[in-house]
Amino acid sequence: MRLSASKITKHFGHRKVVNSANLTINPGEVVVIFGPNGAGKTTFIKILATLLRPSSGQLQIEDIDAITDYATVRHQLGVIVHELMGYPVLTPYENLMFIGKMSGIENLDTRCKVLLDEVGLQRFIHEPLQIFSRGMTQRFMIARALLHNPSILLLDEPFSGLDAAAKQFVLKRIAQERENKKSILITTHNTELGYLVGTRFFFMINGVLEEIAQKDEISEEDLLQRYEEKIIDTA
């Protein structure tokens, strides 16, 4: 599914957090947004996920206006943001079962167990999330985002807190989802992992989204250099 955002702006009081951002993500594409802390990446991803209403601008998923008709498009979205989006007193299995029942997923029990196995949480399936480490919580959030097999993945810092094995799993899974023609957006500070997984790159600094290049147009070193120069220029 194609996601298209046009002139998205978001104000919090007088502060403009996202400034007229334009972005299109096509099926089979992995768009990576690099940006420092406070650049507006999370706010932008929350707007794309229909969790936050923009101050102005348009958001379309295929031909549907996602701002007004959010209920129709939400089940197509797999989202990771900085929040758990679950209940710490429940186990990862219970959390997934709850979300799955709400979404009307078939063969839910098997699906939950397979996913928890894939993200490496099979040993902790009956432990409450409140005892999980940052990395384990992130693994749960990945499982939750993939549970309903969404067409669009919006992943805010998906590598955050993960160990090497889990990062490899996420990289592999994103590549697999890309092959399945999913539209994928990732925000990250990590230029190495971002370059590895992405097909098109953007910078977001002070709320301004700027397209940099397709992967075949830029090397990792050049990308890193341009990113650092940009941050220094705007500091």
């Binding site: 996920a49 939400r74 089940h75 979404s103 309903h148």
Partner: peptide, 18 residues
């Protein structure tokens, strides 16, 4: 408070529930 503290309400909203 249970729904807001860890963003569980966002998880519910994303299921497309009315």
């Amino acid at each position: 408070v249970i729904e807001r503290t860890h963003g569980a309400i966002h998880g519910i909203r994303l299921t497309g529930v009315d």
